[in-house]
Design a protein around this nucleic acid. Structure first.
Lengths: 251, 251
DNA sequence: CGTTGTGTTGATATTAATCAACAAGTGTGG
DNA sequence: CCACACTTGTTGATTAATATCAACACAACG
C-alpha cells in the first residue's frame, strides 16, 4: 500500500532563521514551507508556543478550544486509564495538525518529547478562515483521512502482531518517516539510521508492550544482525529488507 | 469525554419504503434522512449496491476509485497479514463513509456482515461536488476527525486493556451505538439489549483476542451477573454501570 | 440423517508481563 | 572533585494472561 503523501504543512509566522530543534544545524529556517497564500493567512491567526520536553500543551478532558500545528520538534499523543496504563496513539512531528475532532473536550494528551514549537489557533477563528479557503479544508480532510489509515495500521499492529513484528514495524516506519520531514528539518543522518527521541517507556506505550520487552526485543534483533544500537537513541538498520518482511508478518 | 455526534448521514436516491435491514420492520423508509439539498445532489451521483453477508465491496489493495456511504446493514472493515491474521478496524453501519483516504489503493477490505446497501460514488465526481458544496466537505472532515477519536480509543483498548475490559468496552459502546442510528433504522429492542450481528470470530478480530477468549469472557461476565446471553447474538446488559466502570479500567 | 458452521468448554503451551537486580549516565551538593 | 541520588536501559527468574490444541453441543441445511 503506497500512500500519496503530501508534503507536511508547517504553519508559522515568518521569522528569522531558527536552529532546527531535532538536530542542531543553525541558520536554517523552518518557515520555508510557507508558500501558499492561504497558509500566510492562517499563520497570521496563530500564536507560536514553545514547549519543553515533558510539558504538555493539550490535556485529555480539557475544553477543546484550540487547534494546533506542530512546527518543530516531536510530541507524543496519548490516552490514559485511571490506573496509569497509557497508550501513545502517535508521535507528531513538524506539519502535524492536532485537535481536529469536533468534540467539546480533547480526547488525548499531547506532550513534548523534544523541545517543540507549535502554532495555536482559536477554533472559531479557524472555522471562519476555512469558510474562505476551501483548499485548506480539503487539505485538512486529506490529512485526517490519511491519519485514519495510519491508525488502522496501528490497530493491526496492536491487535495482531508479535513483539518482534511490532518493533520491526516501528523501526521501518520511523525510517520511512525520516523522508517525510520538511526538507529543511531533516536529520542529517544516514538513511538507514533511525533516531529515537523518545524513551523506551514511550516506545513501549506506543507498541502496547513493556519497557523490558522493548529492550529485550531490540537486543534480540541486534543478535540477529538486523540492527545495530550504537547508542540507545540511535538504531542502525543493518538489514532493512529483513526488517520490512518481519514487519509485514512474513517469517 | 463526550462527543458532539452528528446524526448519521445516509445518502440514497429517493425511493419507496424499504424493509429495515437490521430488524425486519417493514414500511419504513431508510431515506428519510435525506433532507438537505446537498444530499439530494450527492444522491443523484450515486449508484446503489446491495451486498450479501460474506461478500466484500472494497478489497485491500484495489485501486481506490470509489467512495462509499453505507445506507443500511452492517459491514466489517479489516486489514489482514499474509498468514491470515486479521484485525477488524471497525464495524460500519448506516451513515458511514468509506474510502475517504487519499491513497492510490484501499488500505482495508470492507465486507458485509448483514445484508447491506451502499451508495457508491466516483471519486473524481465527488471532488467536483465538494468544490460546489463546502458544507459537505466540512461534514466529511468532522466525520473523519471523529473517527480518528474512535480509532484512538480502540488503540487504547488493543494496547492496554485486558480481555474483560475489552469485552465490556465493546458491549458498552455497542449499546451506546444503538442510539446513534438513524431514527427509522433503530433496532426495536430494549435499550439494555445489544444485538451482535457479527460472529464471535469477528468480535475476536475486532478486540485483538481469539474466539475462545471471547466466549470464555462472555461466560464469565454472565457468571458475574453483569450480562445475560439469551441467544449468542443478543446480550442483555444486566449491570450497565458495572460494565461501564470495567470498560473504563476501574475495578 | 449426515454435514457444516458456530459457539462453548477443557487441558496445555507460550508469549509477554511482572518482579528483581544491576549497569551506565546525569545532575546535585558538599 | 567526588559521593550521592536519580533516571534510563538492560538482563535474569518467575508468573500470569491469553493462545493453542482438542473435544463436544447445537442449529441450520441439504
Amino acid at each position: 500500500m503506497t500512500l500519496l503523501r503530501a508534503r507536511p504543512l508547517v504553519v508559522e509566522k515568518p521569522q528569522l532563521a531558527q536552529p532546527c530543534a531535532s538536530c542542531d544545524a543553525r541558520g536554517i529556517s523552518v518557515c520555508s514551507a510557507i508558500e501558499d497564500p492561504d497558509l500566510a493567512r492562517l499563520a497570521a491567526l496563530a500564536h507560536t508556543l514553545t514547549v519543553a520536553p515533558g510539558s504538555s500543551f493539550i490535556e485529555e478532558g480539557d475544553p477543546a478550544e484550540h487547534f494546533y500545528n506542530i512546527t518543530a520538534g516531536t510530541t507524543k499523543l496519548f490516552k490514559a486509564l485511571p490506573d496509569g496504563r497509557r497508550q501513545i496513539t502517535g508521535f507528531a512531528g513538524p506539519g502535524h495538525f492536532l485537535g481536529l475532532a469536533v468534540s467539546s473536550t480533547y480526547a488525548f494528551t499531547a506532550e513534548a518529547v523534544e523541545p517543540t514549537r507549535v502554532c495555536r489557533f482559536s477554533r472559531t477563528k479557524l472555522r471562519g478562515l476555512l469558510a474562505d479557503f476551501p483548499a485548506l479544508e480539503r487539505r485538512l480532510l486529506d490529512t485526517a483521512a490519511n491519519e485514519l489509515v495510519l491508525a488502522q495500521e496501528q490497530m493491526l499492529l496492536l491487535g495482531r502482531k508479535t513483539a518482534r513484528e511490532r518493533m520491526a514495524s516501528f523501526l521501518v516506519s520511523r525510517a520511512e518517516g525520516e523522508h517525510l520531514r520538511p526538507i529543511d528539518c531533516r536529520h542529517h543522518a544516514a538513511p538507514e539510521t533511525v533516531t529515537l527521541p523518545m524513551t523506551r517507556s514511550d516506545i513501549a506505550d506506543y507498541l502496547g508492550l513493556t519497557i523490558e520487552t522493548v529492550s529485550r526485543t531490540l537486543t534480540r534483533l541486534r543478535g540477529e544482525k538486523l540492527i545495530d544500537i550504537p547508542v540507545p537513541s540511535r538504531i542502525v538498520l543493518r538489514n532493512p529488507a529483513g526488517l520490512q518482511s518481519l514487519a509485514a508478518g512474513l517469517n
